[in-house]
Amino acid sequence: MTSPARRPPDATPRDRTEAVLSRLHLLVTRKLDGLLQGDYVGLLPGPGSEAGDSREYRPGDDVRRMDWPVTARTTMPHVRRTVADRELETWLAVDLSASLDFGTGRWLKRDVVVAAAAALAHLTARGGNRVGAVIGTGSEPPGGGRRAPAGRGGGFTRLPARSGRREVQALVRAVAGTEIRPGRSDLGALVDLLNRPPRRRGVAVVVSDFLAPPAQWTRPLRKLRVRHDVLAIEVLDPRELELPDVGVLPVVDPETGELHEVRTGDPRLRHRYAEAAAAQRAEIAAALRAGGAAHLRLRTDRDWLLDMVRFVAAQRHARTRGTTR
């Protein structure tokens, strides 16, 4: 009696990646698409550029959409509605720096990043919409030299925007197959790649843990917001918010390789750590809000799919009521 055939050892990593992507594709198409029906409105629906009718101003509306002629005629403030473009271009800035290769929950942070990218690509790649991506790793050139500004190399990879299910699956496969390298990331340069060259108005999504100093990426994010709807997906792990009491804990910085021993048995140390982590996350949230980006937080110890569905539902509800951030 023969035993079941086993996969060759050299093919195991690739086969495992393909199996994970296949399950992820089914999860997204069945559950996410079943809960969020319809092409428009999407995850971050662009308001479009074609002028539509006007309605009375409501608190929270964007003052840049004020319809001044109608306001002058009616003596009541009105805002201009726009018709959504029938073709949408979405660009993903996917941060796969060394700090993403970590996780103590149900998944690694990297897994959540790939899952979020797959879900976003699926939600927007329909009806002729195009999806592209720029991927950044944690690699740094020797001697602290400057990175390559675009294309492949210098820690960055650009995938051109294309339409079609096969092209989107190839994009997700490229994201999942990107090798995480040691070194510090340059999130600001990654975001700035979405500004060059200038593109038609669309949706720009930045997926990262945003551990880089906000001063590094705030300005490129604000520049990106001028032309695009921006969504920032922050991926974090519960151990980044608080430390467990496990005695002496050896910790390795994935970006620098430095080893530290942390005495987690000290309650004052755990308290200071939690306070510093909360302040850091508050600073990140404030910087994203100041940059005009919608903010979605996904955790490795929670159901990322459910969190994404709730976020989309809240966005749709806000737009239906006519209120925007």
Score class of each variant (00 low, 15 high):
residue 158 R to Q: 09
residue 195 N to K: 05
residue 185 S to E: 12
residue 160 P to T: 01
residue 190 L to G: 02
residue 177 G to M: 05
residue 201 R to N: 11
residue 169 Q to T: 07
residue 182 P to K: 09
residue 176 A to C: 09
residue 185 S to Y: 02
residue 148 A to F: 01
residue 173 R to P: 03
residue 197 P to H: 08
residue 143 G to N: 00
residue 144 G to K: 02
residue 156 F to C: 07
residue 143 G to Y: 01
residue 198 P to D: 03
residue 151 G to D: 07
residue 179 E to Q: 14
residue 157 T to V: 12
residue 150 A to G: 12
residue 191 V to E: 04
residue 197 P to M: 03
residue 194 L to Q: 06
residue 189 A to D: 15
residue 167 E to V: 02
residue 143 G to M: 00
residue 151 G to W: 01
residue 202 G to Y: 04
residue 150 A to E: 09
residue 191 V to N: 04
residue 163 S to I: 05
residue 191 V to L: 05
residue 200 R to H: 14
residue 151 G to V: 01
residue 168 V to G: 15
residue 154 G to M: 06
residue 176 A to E: 07
residue 190 L to F: 06
residue 187 L to Q: 11
residue 145 G to Q: 06
residue 145 G to S: 10
residue 194 L to R: 05
residue 191 V to A: 02
residue 154 G to C: 06
residue 143 G to V: 12
residue 188 G to I: 04
residue 185 S to H: 07
residue 196 R to S: 15
residue 169 Q to R: 15
residue 144 G to C: 04
residue 152 R to W: 00
residue 190 L to N: 08
residue 142 P to L: 00
residue 153 G to H: 03
residue 156 F to D: 10
residue 176 A to M: 05
residue 196 R to G: 11
residue 146 R to V: 10
residue 185 S to T: 15
residue 153 G to K: 02
residue 182 P to E: 04
residue 198 P to K: 04
residue 174 A to H: 05
residue 195 N to R: 14
residue 167 E to L: 01
residue 183 G to I: 08
residue 196 R to W: 09
residue 170 A to T: 01
residue 146 R to T: 10
residue 200 R to S: 13
residue 142 P to Q: 00
residue 144 G to H: 03
residue 179 E to Y: 03
residue 156 F to M: 05
residue 183 G to A: 08
residue 158 R to F: 01
residue 179 E to P: 02
residue 171 L to M: 14
